[in-house]
Simulated scan of single mutants.
Amino acid sequence: MKPSAIRNKVVVFGGGTGLSTLLRGLKKHPLELTAVVTVADDGGSSGRLLDQYDIPPPGDVRKVMAALSDVEPLIEELFQYRFTAQDSLDGHSLGNLMLAAMTDITGDFATAIKKMGQVLNIKGEVLPAANERITLHAELEDGTIVTGESKIPMYARKIRRVYLSPQDAEPLPETLRAIREADLIIVGPGSLYTSILPSLLVQDIRDAVLLSAARKVYVGNLTTQKGETYRYTASEHVAALYDHVGEPFLDAVLLNSKDLMPVLTAAGQAVTSWPVECDLDRLAELVPQIVQEDIAFAKDGRVLHDADKVARWFMEDILAEEPCKEEA
């Protein structure tokens, strides 16, 4: 007779630094993790590879794979390494190039991610929101249409909605299966319009999330984002999620409880990203459960989510580990 731990199935949506940070905390716990990553990035190294090789942009996927990897720190650093020489490699990440090469070898982006995941010994599964190029568009409040994820924040105007082309982009069967089997779905943290929503706008993913019996939790951003969510409150973030998905779908929201303004205004720095206001009365009309915890820390004048504290909250308050079962 030996104990067998109960493993909880968790699907996380997002992209960029926010998703990577969260996963670094969650991977330390006995969870079956699936990260569904946006492939709408069209800037920097990802954008150049997208144009040159006609593949989905690898940047956010690379960051998530690095976060979930279980290899020597030097190998992870190598995967994340960005060239700075003034030549054709300038600005490219080695990991992006490796994913592009593996896609060329295997003939398929999703297969390339799976094979590279084996090399990096990642804990969990990384799945692109679609196995093809997709383009993110934004309709601004004045009716202007902006095409391209990297261009949207540059306009610094209020966003009315974002949408994808092609509109019939299909997710991988593995993604839909992970959502159906999930015990918990986590949304965020991350850029609302350019990191979180692009994955949820894939129609089959949206439908699967709405049909899922999993508990659904949004991890609120610590600060607003210039060009995307300037001075948005917590309830406005949630309302934007509901507007795009089509109906309320969250069971809970996890927010920071600490006053962040002293950090942001330290040493006379100009504040360009404001702390997200926790307008609890309005938020209570949108979400059944609101939780405020001290889940932030300051570094180099910035505030970041504490990955370990966030992961611990999920383990203790939502995914409380069940007693071990005995198996023959």
Rank of each mutant, 00 (worst) to 15 (best):
K63H: 15
P57R: 11
G43C: 01
T34Q: 06
G47M: 07
E32I: 06
D70G: 02
S45Y: 12
P56L: 07
P56T: 01
V61H: 07
T38F: 14
P73F: 11
H29L: 15
E32G: 09
G43M: 10
H29T: 03
Q52P: 04
Y53R: 08
V37R: 12
G59Q: 04
L68E: 09
A67N: 05
L50E: 09
D60Q: 04
P30C: 01
V36D: 00
V37P: 15
V64A: 11
D42S: 03
K63I: 02
V64L: 15
K63L: 10
T38I: 02
L31S: 05
L33T: 04
I75V: 15
H29C: 11
K63F: 12
V61G: 03
L49Q: 04
D42P: 02
G47H: 08
A35M: 05
L74V: 08
L49Y: 12
L49I: 14
P56S: 04
I55S: 10
P57S: 15
I55G: 11
P30W: 12
L33A: 06
L49S: 01
S46Y: 12
H29F: 13
T34E: 03
R48L: 08
S69H: 01
D60C: 05
P73I: 01
V61F: 06
Y53G: 02
P56V: 04
E32H: 01
H29M: 09
L50Y: 02
D70W: 10
I75F: 15
L50V: 06
P58L: 05
D70C: 09
F79R: 03
E32V: 01
P57W: 10
D54M: 10
A35N: 09
E72L: 15
V61I: 13
L74D: 07
